[in-house]
Amino acid sequence: MTTDALYALPRFRRSGDAALTIEVGDGIDADVNARVVDLDRALTERALRGIVEIVPTYRTLLVCFDPTVLSRRAVETEVMSLWPPAPPAGQVRRRWTVPVAYGGDNGMDLDWLAQRLDTTTDDIVARHSAAEYRVYMIGFMPGLTYLGGLDPFLHVDRRPEPRLVVPPGSVSVGGQQAAISPPLPAPSGWHMLGRTPVRSYDPRREAEPFLFRAGDLVRFRPIDGAECAALERAAEAGEIIAEKDEHTV
């Protein structure tokens, strides 16, 4: 990795008495996020007693720890001993195909975006579903999935007035990002292009309630209303309806 967005050394920021934020770079950048994911993996594999949770974001790693067991200085020392974290040999990457019903009640902003960009709704759908996205982080609400890789043609400012409620599973764009909303109503200032019956968060999946994780790849597959309804029923029954393939990188 040689991107200018990466820091030569990690930067440590106190986050209260029981957490430490580790900055590895700046901006929405695939190399920066890859280093976050690699550091997350390396720290997790160390299984240090006293670490409570590790949360990857776009460019930082939040390490929550029990200060009665582990000191902030010990966490910093451990990170420096791992720096720079190397991706494992034969790393397996997950690629998901997510079905989306575009437009109409499922995507209330699709027509508006086509008019704003002086194109057709078919063109918007084709561009949005042709891209391959990287999961940068999960946050704000359980299962809200932040994606990079949006076609630059679709970059558009967020809504000046956010909606207080958008439908569960909304698939949206805002700025240079795309997103998949969790399977529950939520506020959003992004533009809704469609909706997916995929449940990015389901507490019934005890081993892995969050479907996506940072570093995964995502592609969208357009579907019609009938298929969306059928897949909704399958998801309600507990099926994971997003298709997954794994490959070694």
Rank of each mutant, 00 (worst) to 15 (best):
A229S: 12
M137N: 00
R73N: 10
F65A: 11
A178D: 03
P88R: 15
D245P: 01
A126K: 06
I28F: 00
R233A: 13
R159I: 03
D202N: 12
T97Y: 04
G50Q: 08
R13I: 14
R72E: 14
L39F: 03
S170K: 07
D151Y: 05
Y102G: 15
E206I: 15
T145M: 00
H247Y: 15
L48Y: 07
R213P: 00
K244Y: 02
A235G: 13
G215D: 00
L62A: 13
R199M: 13
P87W: 07
R46H: 06
A131P: 02
P10W: 02
R73V: 10
D26R: 14
R49T: 15
T145I: 01
L48K: 09
A101W: 14
E227Q: 15
V55E: 02
R158A: 08
D4N: 13
P197V: 12
R116N: 11
D123C: 09
V79I: 10
Y102L: 14
E45R: 15
V173E: 02
Y136G: 00
A86I: 09
I124D: 02
P85S: 08
P162G: 04
T77K: 10
F212P: 03
A235V: 10
S200L: 02
S181L: 11
A30S: 09
A178E: 02
D26W: 11
A130H: 08
E53D: 12
V173P: 05
I51Y: 05
P168E: 09
M192R: 03
A178T: 03
A207L: 12
T121K: 10
Q115V: 12
A235D: 06
A47C: 07
T57F: 01
V69I: 14
E232D: 15
N33A: 00
V198F: 05
Q177Y: 06
I51G: 08
H155W: 08
P203C: 06
E232V: 09
N106R: 14
A89G: 08
D31A: 14
T21G: 10
A18Q: 13
D216I: 01
